[in-house]
Design a protein around this nucleic acid. Sequence first.
DNA 1: AATCTTCATCCATCCAGTCC
DNA 2: GGACTGGATGGATGAAGATT
Length: 203
Amino acid sequence: MPPHQYPGSGNGSGENPLELAIGIQVRACRTRLGMTAADLARASRISVGMMSKIENGVISASLATLQALSRALDVPLTTFLRGREYEGNAIFVPAGAETAFEMGEARAAQRYKLLGYFGTHASSPTVETYLFTLDKETDAFPPLEHFGMEFLYLLEGEMTYRIGSMRYLMGPGDSLSFAGHTPHGPEQLIRLPVRFLSTISYL
DNA sequence: AATCTTCATCCATCCAGTCC
DNA sequence: GGACTGGATGGATGAAGATT
């Protein structure tokens, strides 16, 4: 298959494009870790034959099976779906080309960048993803509120994050999912710089 | 309306065959 | 010989129709 051509798209087969896409992602993750199909099958507690069919898009693996694979590969379940959606309507943001925002005088040093969005109009996206970089202790900001749901993933640093009356001590790799209408925000920046991804869904 | 039966479909395993 | 593929097969599940 030529580079940049998505598996299952335009290959003439027209069969199980989503299953093929998932299979390609599973295989890519597996080979990246230097595992054989048998290794991954063993780790996921499925048969080697099943592994073969999943990787070749022959079957639609159940969610339980995909979850087992994601755990064995130590990747989020959504990794297997990456790149399949919105093939003809993708938004590519090269490194350094993000849209930077300043959040007002009181938060002058605290910056966040819009990495991408999806929706029928840029003015009313259904999903937005931001990269926050907080490099001063004073960058912690008052709680925010908004519609929809938010997912937060801490990349670097350490902080306490407040959601309503709850406080969460977060380190790299920790994540939070919560309703946007609950007042939330970084409360104390413990180890700088703090960098985290924030995805907001307005659905 | 609730229960039972039948049938189709899906997901998974087994295992023989193929490929490198 | 190890890795992988794909056909055959079985168990689980759900939909649809029949019966009470």
